[in-house]
Every structure is written in C-alpha cells, then in structure tokens.
Design a binder for these strands. Structure first.
Length: 448
RNA sequence: GGGAGCGUAGCUCAGUUGGCAGAGCACCACGCUGUGGCCGUGGCGGUCGCGGGUUCAAGUCCCGUCGCUCCUCCCA
C-alpha cells in the first residue's frame, strides 16, 4: 500500500537541505550578533494559549488552527505561530524576574490549516525574535534592523524589498479608532464587499487590509490610525521613525497595514518582496505591549517579528536546481572487486580506516560492474581505491586520482595510520573545485 | 472559503476524429572479462493520480474524488 504525505506537508530532500542549512546558519548568526538567545518551545500547546493570546476572532485561530484532544480529552493545538508560546515560556519561567530585557529567538515548524500554494504550506517554518521588557522605540528599530541585516547577509536585493510601517495605537486607542472607522464605513457599507460588511461589525480594522477593488476608494478615504492614536503613541511612532532613518532603513508609511493577529499594539511592520507573487510577505512583526499581562505575567511591553523560511528558499533557490545528483562529494570511493569474502572484508575495513582518517568516503554497495563502478566513482569522488584478490595477494590496494588520472598503490598497513593515510590522499583543493579546473587538460570533463 | 488550469516511466514531457502506452534524460548490461569520462547496441522501468460511468473499445469523452499550480482570500 502506498501511503502519501499529508496535504500541505512536504519533504525537504538532500538536494535542498544545504540551502536550508545555510539559511538556518545565517539566521542564527544574525540573531546571536544582535544579542538574541535561542529558545526552543514545544510544537504543541493548550488551545487557550492561542485563542486568548492571538485572538479568538483572528483567522489564524478561528479557521486555520490544528486542534485535537489528547488521550485524556485536553484540548491541544499545533502552534500556528511562536510569539504566544515564547511569551508563555517567559511568564512560566519567571524570566521577567531576572530584571533584564529578555531577547529571545526561535526557528522552527508552525502549522496552519490553509489551502496550500507556492510559498504557503500547512507545515511551514518561521524564524523570529522577541524582545520582551522594554518600550524603548530604539528597540522597535533594532528589530527591524535585524531583519534588514539578515536580508543583506542573504544577498537579497534591496530594490525588490519594501518595508511597510504603521502604528495601530495602544489598547486605549483601539476602541475610539474602531468607532471612527465604523462611522466612516457605515454610510458606505453598500459599496463594500460582503467580507468587509461582516468585518464592519466584528473587526473594522481588517477592512483596511482588504484588497478588493470595490473597497479601495472607501479605504483610501478612511481615517488613519496614526491620526487617532494618543499622544504617547504618536510620540513613540515618531521616535521609531527617527531611529529607523538613523539606521538607514528604507521604509514607507502604510496606514492600511493592520496585521492579522489581535495582540499587536503601536508599531506594526511588514517586509514584502516583489519577486514572490501572491504570497509576498517575507516577514512581519510589531509591538505586543499587552500580551505578557494577558498571559498572566506582569505588565511588560515587547516587540518581535517572524519570517517565513519557505519564502526565503523561494527567493534564494538557484534557478537551475540540477545540482550534483550523486550526493555528497567524496574524497574516496572504495570498490571491492570480485565476490570473495576476504576482499570484501578488507574493503570494508579500508573504508572504515579512511573515515577514521577524516576522509569523506563511501563504497560500491550496489554490485555494479567494475566499469560502471568506476564511472560512479569518477562522478562522485576525487580518488578511487580498488580491493580484490590481486590486491590481497600483493598486500596493497590499487588507487587512482580521478582528476589527474594518475594511478598509485597504497600498502595495506598504511591504512591503520590515519595521518599517513591523509598524506596519501592529500587534497590541495576540494574535489568540487578541482573538477572545475583539472590540472591535466587531457582529463578535462565537460562543464557540469 | 470562492474561481481557473494541470496530473502519462525516477525526471522533463509527446500521445491525432476514442483503436496495441511513447521519446529524451537517468538507471542496468554488453561491445571493451580487473580500471572512469566518448561512442554504439540492447534492457529494466507504467494500477496513464484514484473511483465510477458512456462505448465493441477510454490516457483520450462524462461525473466524482485526491493532489499540485495560479488567481482571490489570508498571511510567514
């Protein structure tokens, strides 16, 4: 019976993992450079963490969350995002009591039950930071700067990226602004799309987010949140902008940017790429000054962002994925010749010794003909070592440098001396590079 | 959630008005018996996504379903 993967969940095959590993390394390095320590929180949490933290009314919680009871009937959820979990951990472990600003980073799988498409899977991966314990607008700018730094390090073209910035005010500002929006949209309700007519009742903020043409004129004329927030929030927002400018980050104000999660306050931002199609948000974040208190901690301001790994992979994936299909580039390929057990045991032993000498090695396990095995060796390895009855009789293995074509022999006793062994197979240049520019033109290969 | 397109060999794809399921690449063997890259010959490989229906006959037409892709939506 063939069992297939679950919709929206995909495998990352060895050809692709090097890119993922590189991204993960860059992300961790950037976060560490900015002073964020990695936290690893569970993939599974109690449902109420998200329904209360992220918001019952949000699409993420209401429509997209994986929810299931455990064996005792406790309602659990696969995390749809990480901020709520990180804040839960912050409160649970009393990190606030340590007095310092908590700067935490994470990288891992999230789950949302959505219609999959390019750049959007049901299991996907997010990286992000949370800085909990300060209202300093310089910190808002710092969080944006980590992401800017990361994009630079990944070599993403600035011109393809847009940072959008807005403020949605604090808790106290929210209701007056909602009222203002209701007042604005109510007379125009008939020209809004059905979705927005519904939003008008429940969450008028989300109308600003609507992309439908019929709603645009009403949205353009809508009151701006930045005009409705209190003096303190206005001041904060202006300072954030000053800092962001000081850090040389290009941005545009977008008063329709409201974000989909309920916990956001004051600063919100989003980085989009024009090279991503419909799913163009690379990362997004903002302040959540009430969340710690909401989840049972002391009133503590905080800010963070999260980015999607899959979308970075899309932007960075080389157009021609037809890479080395042979797998890991090898230093040595060992071919046992003949099928007598003695030769095969010697070959196995030699392979083990090569690896103890830190030479990346593999052997012919598929029983291919010698000719075929040599072909495989030349595609995958720098050196080949042959072990068969003849070699056993002579007490030495036959070997060949597959780049220069120069054959040589290795006495068996050398294999037990790791340092000497490395000497035999010294590589001045990596097999990869070497294959691009062979020293002997006679053995030049066609370009890969 | 709404709309559209596409599912044929491991991969990329042909397949005519319904009439024996194909090519290239890859893989394997041999030419060349224990020494790679080139060339040649042959071979392996398919529930035509799945399930129904129409038909003497379905990869092809119809219905359903699953998956992928795109738009919309949402967002990472």
């Amino acid at each position: 019976m063939k069992v297939e993967s679950v919709r929206g969940m995909r495998d990352i095959l060895p050809e692709e993992t090097p890119l993922w590993q590189k991204l993960e390394a860059e992300i961790r390095a950037a976060f560490a450079l900015y002073g964020y320590g990695e936290i690893r929180v569970p993939l599974v949490e109690r449902v109420e963490l998200f329904s209360r933290g992220v918001g019952e009314e949000t699409e993420v919680v209401d429509k997209q969350m994986y929810v299931f009871p455990d064996r005792k009937g406790l309602q659990l959820a696969l995390r749809p995002e990480a901020t709520a979990s990180v804040v839960r951990a912050y409160v649970e472990h009393g990190l606030h009591a340590k007095g310092d600003l908590a700067k935490l980073s994470y990288l891992g799988a999230m789950f949302r039950y959505e219609k999959p498409q390019l750049g959007r899977q049901r299991q996907f991966h997010q990286y992000g930071v949370e800085a909990i314990g300060s209202l300093d607008p310089a910190l808002d700018a710092e969080v944006m700067d980590v992401s800017a730094y990361l994009m630079e390090k990944l070599g993403l073209d600035r011109r393809g990226l847009t940072l959008r910035l807005n403020t949605i005010g604090c808790r106290q500002d929210r209701e007056p602004y909602r009222e203002a929006l209701r007042l604005h949209f109510l007379p125009r309700a008939s020209q809004l799309c059905p979705d927005c007519q519904r939003r008008l009742v429940g969450n008028p903020l989300r109308i600003l987010d609507c992309k439908r043409p019929q709603c645009q004129s009403a949205i353009m004329a809508a009151p701006k949140s930045s005009d409705y927030v209190c003096e303190a929030c206005q001041g904060h927002f202006h300072q954030v902008q000053d800092y962001v400018k000081a850090l040389d980050i290009r941005f545009e104000l977008d008063h329709t940017l409201v974000r989909g999660l309920d916990y956001y306050t004051r600063t919100v931002f989003e980085l989009c790429s024009r090279d991503l199609g419909a799913q163009d948000a690379l990362l997004g974040g903002g302040r959540y000054d009430d969340l710690v208190e909401l989840l049972g901690g002391p009133a503590t301001p905080a800010i963070g962002f999260a980015g999607g790994m899959e979308r970075l992979v899309l932007l960075l994936e080389p157009p021609e994925t037809q890479q080395e299909r042979g797998g890991v580039p090898l230093d040595v390929y060992v071919i046992p010749v003949g099928d007598d057990q003695h030769s095969r045991s010697m070959a196995a032993s030699i392979l083990m010794r090569l690896r103890r000498a830190r030479l990346v090695s593999d052997a012919e396990y598929k029983g291919r003909s010698l000719r075929k095995a040599m072909q495989v060796a030349s595609n995958r390895a720098h050196f080949v070592v042959l072990v068969g009855p003849d070699e056993l009789a002579e007490g030495k293995a036959k070997a060949k440098d597959l780049i220069t074509g120069v054959p040589f022999e290795v006495e068996f006793h050398w294999f037990s001396d790791a340092e000497a062994l490395r000497g035999f197979f010294q590589r001045e240049i990596s097999p990869h590079a070497a294959r691009g520019q062979p020293s002997d033109p006679e053995h030049e290969k066609p370009p890969l």
